[in-house]
Simulated assay, not measured.
Amino acid sequence: MASETYVVHASTTRDVALRERTDFWSEHVTSCQSRMGYGYPRTDDFHAGTIRQFTDTHQLVMFWSDTITYTRTAGQTRHAPDEDYRLLLPVTGEMVMRQGDQELRLVPGAGCLVTFATPFELRQDVSARALIMSIAAQEVNGRLNRSSPLTAAIDLASGLGRVVGDMLTGLHEERDTLTTGQFDAVSDRLVELLCMLAAGDDRPTAPGHLTDVETMVRRYIREHAADPGMTGITVAQALGWSLRQVQLALQHAGTTPRELIREERLRLVRDRLPAPAYRHMTITELAYASGFSSSSALSTAFRQRFGVCPREVRHAGPRPVGDTRPS
């Protein structure tokens, strides 16, 4: 059965003997992120800590420490492959990220999207506290139509970037009040908005300004997911585009109208199952109210997507099932 647990866990070197603190920190960060190298100016009395939030799908970590340099070498990318991205945002202090031919100075409001698939060096000052979110590679590469890894500076101080930054810090600040479904849902939306920021000139916009088409299609499908008559054709007609434009825009993002409609309906059911406002509804009624043609169609799709059936989630308690897509 899929895990339904959203976990918040704090760790600190204060609970470790002085001579063991750097070893503890190296092992701890590796277990949370990936294999890296660690440069400690001081090894006799190292102070550091994390607050980690995670489900089966998403992870957000607040971390702080004395001065340290993290490195990921070419050998480590080969022997401990990790294709996923990290969104890095300092909350206080300063960091310097070097990857490829880029050097990024990171301060509050100035973050970066970094890949663990290629070598990098990250220098952290003693005053720095930062948030780091793990993001599955396909979530970024599919939306941006990329076949090679991306490293990008992200302005989180204004406009849409500020919205993303506020969502990220809010996700951390409200960590003790969130459910599995809430944490996953906010993380999903945050990644979607982040990709819009990171796209820049990397995502094709012709023909038909595909970037704008995809954004509008995703928003429309999410808002009308419960409509049982929604298809790729009805979406295209409602937005004033051709079906081909809609299909091409979603193809660049690695999906199709049918798949996206099913995904949003499944997320709708996932969110509604534990909600008090829908507890009075049977699974069949919930299926029809969420756009599915029958309870059996919902159960089959739900089990394929989340690893459990809706009835198991309904009987499990107030927390919704976590997303079980492979990272």
Rank of each mutant, 00 (worst) to 15 (best):
V114I: 14
T115W: 06
Q102D: 11
P90F: 07
L113D: 06
L144D: 12
G100K: 00
V140R: 01
P90M: 08
A130F: 14
I68V: 14
A130H: 07
T69W: 01
R129Y: 08
V126Q: 10
E83V: 14
W64D: 09
N141M: 07
S127D: 14
S127E: 13
A152G: 13
L104N: 02
G111K: 02
Q99M: 03
Q124C: 14
A128F: 04
V114P: 08
T69D: 02
Q102K: 11
A128C: 15
P149D: 02
Y85M: 03
I68P: 04
L113R: 02
G93E: 06
S147A: 13
A137K: 05
L89H: 12
F63H: 10
Q138Y: 15
L131I: 01
E139M: 14
P81L: 04
T67D: 09
E139A: 15
P90G: 08
V126N: 09
G111R: 02
P90E: 07
P108V: 06
T92V: 04
A152C: 15
T118P: 11
T92K: 05
Q76F: 01
E94H: 13
L150V: 00
N141H: 05
F63M: 14
T92N: 07
T73G: 00
A80Q: 06
L104S: 03
V126M: 04
V126A: 13
Y70P: 02
Y85K: 04
G93Q: 06
L106D: 10
P119A: 00
G100V: 00
V114T: 10
M95R: 08
R72A: 02
G142S: 03
E121H: 09
V114H: 06
R86F: 15
S147Q: 12
E103R: 11
Q124L: 14
L104E: 04
Q124E: 13
D82K: 11
D101E: 13
V107D: 07
A117K: 03
M62H: 13
Q76L: 05
R98M: 09
D66C: 07
T77L: 01
R143W: 02
